[in-house]
Computed example of a mutant assay.
Amino acid sequence: MTNTQAILLILALFNVVTFCVYWWDKEAARDWDWRVSEARLLQFALFGGSLGAVAAQKLLRHKTQKEPFRSHLRFIIVIHITAFFLWLSAPLWLTYLPTLAP
């Protein structure tokens, strides 16, 4: 298994965990039980679980109307998309980086 495959596997598993945490919070909301804080839900999304968070929002209809939660999650998604494209393009721009050094 390559490093890239390992990273993708870890991210996939973390997204499954994130989805489960959102599901748990949704069930707790229905049962008037102890809830997962919004800050914790956003932390799961920020640390790599943004796809799981979005899937939970869409499939479970959880936290879809809550502001500023929605805006924060969208911002996290923008960060992740930017990081993904930087990671994909790294072989291109890393070759030019040494030429920019004085």
Results as ranks from 00 to 15, higher is better:
1 M>C: 07
1 M>I: 10
2 T>R: 02
3 N>M: 14
5 Q>C: 14
6 A>V: 06
8 L>K: 12
8 L>G: 10
12 A>T: 14
13 L>Q: 11
13 L>E: 14
14 F>R: 07
15 N>Y: 11
15 N>D: 13
15 N>C: 13
18 T>C: 10
21 V>L: 11
23 W>H: 03
24 W>C: 07
24 W>H: 02
25 D>F: 02
26 K>R: 07
28 A>H: 00
29 A>R: 03
30 R>V: 03
31 D>H: 03
36 V>D: 10
39 A>V: 04
43 Q>G: 02
44 F>W: 14
44 F>I: 06
44 F>Q: 05
47 F>G: 02
47 F>Y: 14
49 G>H: 15
49 G>F: 13
49 G>W: 11
52 G>N: 00
53 A>S: 08
54 V>R: 08
57 Q>S: 09
59 L>A: 03
59 L>G: 03
60 L>C: 06
62 H>T: 08
63 K>V: 10
65 Q>L: 07
65 Q>D: 14
65 Q>P: 07
67 E>H: 11
69 F>L: 04
69 F>M: 06
71 S>A: 07
71 S>T: 15
71 S>F: 12
74 R>C: 05
74 R>L: 14
76 I>P: 05
76 I>N: 11
77 I>K: 00
78 V>P: 02
83 A>N: 03
84 F>I: 07
85 F>K: 01
86 L>Y: 12
87 W>A: 13
89 S>D: 13
90 A>Y: 15
91 P>W: 06
93 W>Q: 04
93 W>H: 04
95 T>N: 05
96 Y>S: 13
98 P>D: 05
100 L>Y: 12
100 L>I: 14
101 A>S: 14
